[in-house]
């Protein structure tokens, strides 16, 4: 499926996750964040950068890892992205939806 964010055409799956991280730009992330009702701050972007870095290094993500990352505490993570922190932040990051149960 193709979708246009900030005048950039990107491929997304049926749940709205980008299927190719190389198509991602900060503007695309910003538009997805708006869809999720999130106003991005520097702290939000710091988390997004961390998630993308982990994905590029092929590290599977879960809440425990994020909490131990030193980037954000679990409490802060929930405050930044309420209603499903890892799911929503992954979508904004342009990486696949995490499959862990943790």
């Amino acid at each position: 499926m193709e979708k246009t964010y900030a005048e950039v055409s990107v491929s997304v799956n049926e749940e709205g996750y980008l299927t190719d991280l190389s198509q991602w730009t900060k503007e695309v992330g910003n538009e997805i964040a708006k869809e999720e009702g999130i106003e991005m701050t520097d702290k939000h972007w710091e988390v997004i950068n961390y998630l993308q870095e982990q994905y590029r290094n092929e590290v599977p993500l879960n809440i425990r890892k994020v909490g131990k990352s030193g980037v954000v505490s679990i409490k802060e993570f929930y405050a930044l992205f309420p209603n499903g922190p890892l799911k929503i932040s992954s979508r904004i990051s342009g990486i696949p939806k995490p499959i862990s149960c943790i």
């Binding site: 599977p60 879960n62 809440i63 425990r64 890892k65 909490g67 505490s73 679990i74 409490k75 929930y78 862990s100 943790i102």
Partner: peptide, 18 residues
Amino acid sequence: KLDIPPIDEFLEILSASG
């Protein structure tokens, strides 16, 4: 191995998660 935390840490995660 599956990154499932021990009980004490899991309780901390739950509490921090709300």
